[in-house]
Design a protein around this nucleic acid. Structure first.
Lengths: 256, 256
DNA sequence: TGGACGGTTTCACGAAACGGAACGTTGGTT
DNA sequence: AACCAACGTTCCGTTTCGTGAAACCGTCCA
């Protein structure tokens, strides 16, 4: 593992469940020798990638990441478009929506639109989910060739719940279903009591893929409502897909 | 210069005026040998710090920076509070406002609130300004001991305009004025035709400092309006300062 | 006081980064 | 087709840096 890989691993620790790190926490998280951890955190701080929390020995992300991250988000017209579309769908249906991207075997929400109903799903920003065991993840995995999915999970996977795919064959079958219908669903899978429906769009110009997702409380959302929000999602995705040239949504399958 | 320093320098290139980089551009920007630049960009990409724009040889920030940057912004209740306050002031006065932080000898806007007037100042997000030659920068420098300001500018500075501080004595005199009044101003300094007023708040718990700034078109903003928005800014800053324990704004000097 | 704990520093050696030069690729011009 | 320019990659010998284990340091608590 190179020094840059180590630094990137450190940065990946930060998210909804981790706002700062100590040497010992890094040792525990990454299995790194204590002296390496101490020196790496200090070198990253000195470079500006991290900063200390006041005079403490705690390290958090540094300011220089903010502008670069902003460039990432703004460089992508696909993200911007998908996000605007999702905002409209959320405003109409009242459920929580987010845009998710895949990073390796995980997915992360990068934008978030809280719903307006009394009972709604909480923000998932900054939380990493296993791609194979989430609607957004499966919608994105379905856009990969089978060989690539097999290579990604060459070491196998541990299902987090009984409703998640149980093995490679199960996963591939579900991805084939996603490809056929053009959307993915999840129920009680990453989080209890929550259902989700997700649609992926790929920008053929640069290969970037995003997933638009609506998450809803399973107990209070009946079949008619689920059909309605799925239709809105598929319509919205088709509109963006037409703009960026993603042929997958050219003929939209009937929701059902 | 260590490898991490080099990587951080690359990330600092990204902002409002740079959304992606090639090997040659990096050579030009950082004066780095070509082979080093090629290897560095590739190593950063392989680590996830950067990614290629499609199949091109252009590199842009990688997704992993987004969550870490978000943690930076959310970890700071000071930024959140200052931003909310500024939003209210902007809504009232109609001019453009932003929150700025200092990084070394420069300041960068991290949040932005466009004004509502017909003539308003454009967004400055992602643009670095010289701290000594901007209102936000001077409001933040005034919160440093004089020795620290001298050390920061040990190599001297080149004034970007006739209204900017011309030498160290001039800068120190202005910073003393900022300390006395608790706010900094700029006119025609970083940008022609624009005036700005800025107030800094320091969170004594972790030493974090932010500057709240309102920027306005100099030609159409009369003295009464300037006094009014300065009063709003000072009132807002005093309110936040009381919450975080910054004693500087405990007794607010009369604006004038 | 002694021990536990978190973090830092030291050390010798192997790994990685260095910069210049050669090489490979692409596109444009004659 | 041959040539040239520009960009990016790879090679090579040398130098620098990162490695992990162990020692050390500072703080806190029984």
């Amino acid at each position: 593992m190179s020094l840059l890989d180590a630094a990137a691993q450190v940065l990946r620790c930060y998210g909804a469940d981790c706002t700062d790190l100590t040497v010992t926490e890094l040792v525990t998280r990454l299995g790194m020798p204590k002296s390496n951890a101490s020196r790496l955190l200090r070198a990253m701080r000195d470079a500006g990638l991290l900063e200390n929390v006041g005079a403490s020995k705690r390290y958090r992300p540094g300011l220089l990441l903010v502008d670069a991250a902003r460039v990432y988000l703004r460089a992508s017209s696909l993200i911007a478009r998908a996000d605007a579309m999702l905002a409209r769908i959320v405003a109409d249906c009242g459920h929580t929506g987010h845009i998710a991207l895949r990073e390796g075997r995980e997915v992360t929400a990068i934008t978030d639109h809280p719903g307006t109903k009394a009972l709604r799903v909480a923000s998932s920003i900054g939380t990493l989910l296993a791609a194979f065991a989430s609607a957004t993840g499966r919608s994105l995995l379905a856009r990969l060739p089978e060989a690539e999915v097999r290579a990604l999970y060459a070491a196998g996977f541990a299902p987090p719940s009984p409703s998640a795919p149980q093995d490679m064959a199960d996963l591939l079958r579900r991805l084939e279903e996603v490809r056929r219908r053009a959307y993915a669903t999840a129920n009680d899978e990453a989080s209890r009591g929550i259902g989700a429906v997700a649609v992926a769009i790929v920008d053929p110009r640069d290969g970037q893929a995003v997933s638009l997702c609506i998450a809803y409380p399973a107990a209070t959302t009946d079949a008619a409502e689920r059909r309605s929000l799925l239709a809105a999602l598929l319509d919205g995705a088709a509109e963006i897909a037409a703009l960026v040239g993603d042929a997958t949504h050219a003929v939209r399958p009937r929701a059902g």
